[in-house]
Amino acid sequence: MVPTAYYIILSAALFTIGVLGVLIRRNAIVVFMSVELMLNAANLALVAFARERLNVDGQVLVFFVITVAAAEVAVGLALLVAIFRTKNTADVDEVSTLKG
């Protein structure tokens, strides 16, 4: 069996890549994808710990995370479409005024 530490380190690396995506990229959709990557990294850590402790509760939590992520993606992409319609850009640097 693969040690849990390997999974946790992979999860940390993926989470860091997601953080870097949020910090570096300016395309709002790619920023959003990076958020999804971070959620996935956290899910991986949860599943790895659930396997290590032989406790299904971790998997239930991942199920909830995935459900909420689906709702979040739907609302977030609708927001992006609404922003794109008014500002005509998906660059996060251009959307800095908080005015309609």
Binding site: R25, R26, N27, A28, I29, F32, M33, E36, A69, A70, V73, A74, L77, L80, V81, F84, T89, A90, D91
Partner: peptide
Amino acid sequence: IMVLFLFVVMLLGAEQVE
């Protein structure tokens, strides 16, 4: 989720804004 992402990227034509 990924189909939704691809759909929005192609709908907005926001492939390259950087």
